[in-house]
């Protein structure tokens, strides 16, 4: 079986985000990058599928600048067989729609049985790319998967997925796209042996031309949504912190909540 895992290289969730006045993107100075946490669940699930099913070829795919190869290198260290970086300066200004178009083009013809991705990337939080890739490849998508079982012989998968306050068990004929929710698995860390092996594995780079994308489909021109402004919001808080015995602070707090904040 062939499995593609879509990963995005994003700022660490512990990072304090800063934006220079007038900029439309974050200040990248001093920011460390990681694989988006939900994509780690997707990668782990690919590895678990291989452990359960045996013959599973894993390809990690990322769209981003050259630096995003770090995310792919980590996937290779974890056990991906090969990796594809979709990268072109022409993607500057791309939105999630363009990103999905380009990723779909990179995946097309790859005969993947499963395409796995995180439910959303923790930078733009769009929760769009996995679903849009499915649409562009005319595949079904099952989002927010917390359990996945593949029946290789039948060419089907059964997945549990979260919905609003309930969940569904879903059966689908492969190929299909699945996006991972927390709870699917517990991602492992790369082992030293894997890191050494990863250095020898190939990362192919595909640019816009190789993907057969027209200039008007790329970057800001192809985008459906344009970022006009980015800023760090601030909300003034009251910061009334009470100290003392609970017999005094508890009634005082409840009084403030009822009479000052009026939330009780």
């Amino acid at each position: 079986m062939k499995v593609a895992v879509l990963v995005k290289h994003v700022p660490d969730t512990e990072t304090r985000i800063q934006v220079k006045p007038g900029d439309k993107k974050i200040n990248e100075e001093g920011v460390t990058y990681i694989i988006s946490p939900f994509d780690e669940f997707a990668m782990e699930e690919a590895l678990l599928l291989r452990e359960r099913l045996g013959d599973v070829q894993i390809t990690a795919v990322a769209l981003g600048p050259q630096k995003a190869t770090e995310a792919l290198r980590t996937c290779l260290a974890l056990g991906a067989d090969d990796a594809i970086l979709v990268s072109d300066p022409a993607f500057e200004g791309a939105d999630a729609y363009v990103t999905a178009k380009a990723l779909a083009a990179a995946l097309k013809g790859g005969n993947y049985d499963l395409i796995l991705a995180g439910k959303q990337a923790v930078d733009d939080d769009a929760a769009y790319v996995g679903t849009a890739v499915a649409e562009f490849l005319d595949l079904p998508v099952i989002n927010l998967v917390t359990k996945l079982e593949v029946n290789k012989a039948a060419g089907t998968a059964v997945a549990a997925r979260d919905l609003d306050g309930y969940s569904q068990v879903i059966e689908v004929k492969l190929p299909a796209v699945f996006t991972a929710q927390k709870g699917l698995n517990n991602p492992r860390l790369p082992a030293l042996m894997g890191i050494m092996k990863a250095k020898k594995k190939e990362i192919r780079t595909l640019n816009a031309q190789a993907l057969g994308l027209a200039p008007n489909e790329l970057g800001a021109e192809g985008a459906k949504v344009e970022v006009k402004e980015m800023f760090v919001p601030s909300k003034a808080r009251k910061n009334k912190v009470l100290t003392g015995a609970p017999a005094e602070t508890a009634p005082e707090l409840v009084k403030l909540l009822a009479e000052e904040a009026k939330v009780l």
Partner: peptide, 12 residues
């Protein structure tokens, strides 16, 4: 964006 650490204004 970034879980609310920043916000964007977007046009269509």
């Amino acid at each position: 964006v970034y879980a609310g650490k920043a916000q964007t204004k977007v046009g269509f």
